[in-house]
Simulated scan of single mutants.
Amino acid sequence: MSGNGTETKAYLLDTNVFRYKSSPSAHTNHKKAAKRFWKDVLQEVRHEEAVLYIPKEVIRELELQSYTLGEKERQRISELLENITITIPDWTTPDMEHQVRKMAAYIRSEYQRKINAMRDMEYGSVSDARILLTAWQYDCILVTANIKDFALYPLLFPQHEHRLLNLLSNDYVTISPSIYDTIHHDPIFTGMLQELNDFINR
């Protein structure tokens, strides 16, 4: 599956994709963006143009958050979850999660000012690292409203591929070819990427 071309798209959904659609207190623009995404993606699913994935980590986050939600919102989330094609079980390790956070911290330190999409970049939480790694391992388009926590993700794929979809703006995060090439010729980054692959292939 691929984020490009006519092949079936595999979307992996972050927690906020569910919360912004279901929460009565969500910001109006956030709620509109989530409604638009769900309307469009469910049409793609019906036409067999897309499948929806969710990592176990997002299930856990929604479960924890459910204790502070009203019954209607919990029901809306439950209804959205019925559209998920596959729930992906845990497979990451603490070493993998730390490596992803370390890579993001390095990119933030060295390249944040050069990349518009990374100006507010963070290295994210352990939970974010699990979600990112799951999306990468299963070759998915990662859908999130928290682009700053996942700005590393496009750098794990060829430059031309659309892999990180901003829920709020409904467009893909892109990195210019020149900056992408600079990063991928950075020996520290390439060494970190090799280490990550080594962790996965053990």
Rank of each mutant, 00 (worst) to 15 (best):
V51A: 05
V51M: 08
V51S: 01
L52H: 01
Y53T: 04
Y53N: 01
Y53I: 11
Y53V: 06
I54E: 01
I54G: 00
I54T: 09
I54S: 01
I54F: 00
P55M: 10
P55H: 06
P55L: 07
K56F: 08
K56M: 07
K56R: 10
E57M: 08
E57C: 01
E57R: 10
E57P: 00
E57S: 11
E57N: 02
V58H: 04
V58P: 00
V58S: 07
V58D: 03
V58I: 10
I59M: 06
I59F: 01
I59D: 03
R60S: 13
R60W: 06
R60D: 13
E61W: 01
E61N: 11
E61C: 06
E61Q: 10
E61L: 05
L62K: 08
L62S: 06
L62M: 02
E63A: 08
E63L: 12
E63Y: 06
L64G: 03
L64K: 15
Q65Y: 07
Q65P: 00
S66D: 09
S66I: 09
Y67P: 00
Y67V: 03
Y67E: 06
T68D: 15
T68A: 13
T68Y: 15
T68L: 09
L69A: 14
L69C: 04
G70Y: 03
G70C: 11
G70S: 12
G70Q: 07
E71W: 03
E71K: 12
E71Y: 03
E71H: 11
K72C: 05
K72N: 14
K72L: 12
K72D: 14
E73V: 09
E73H: 04
E73T: 15
R74I: 14
R74Q: 15
R74W: 13
Q75H: 10
Q75G: 02
Q75F: 04
Q75L: 10
R76T: 13
R76P: 00
R76G: 05
I77P: 00
I77R: 10
S78G: 11
S78L: 12
S78W: 10
S78K: 14
S78Y: 13
S78V: 07
E79Q: 11
E79W: 01
E79F: 02
L80M: 14
L80T: 09
L81R: 09
L81N: 06
L81G: 11
L81S: 08
E82Y: 08
E82P: 07
N83D: 11
N83T: 07
N83M: 08
N83H: 15
I84V: 15
I84C: 06
T85N: 12
T85C: 02
T85V: 07
I86L: 11
I86D: 09
I86E: 12
T87S: 04
I88K: 04
I88D: 00
I88M: 08
I88G: 00
I88V: 15
I88W: 02
I88Y: 03
I88A: 07
P89F: 10
P89H: 14
W91R: 07
W91V: 04
W91L: 09
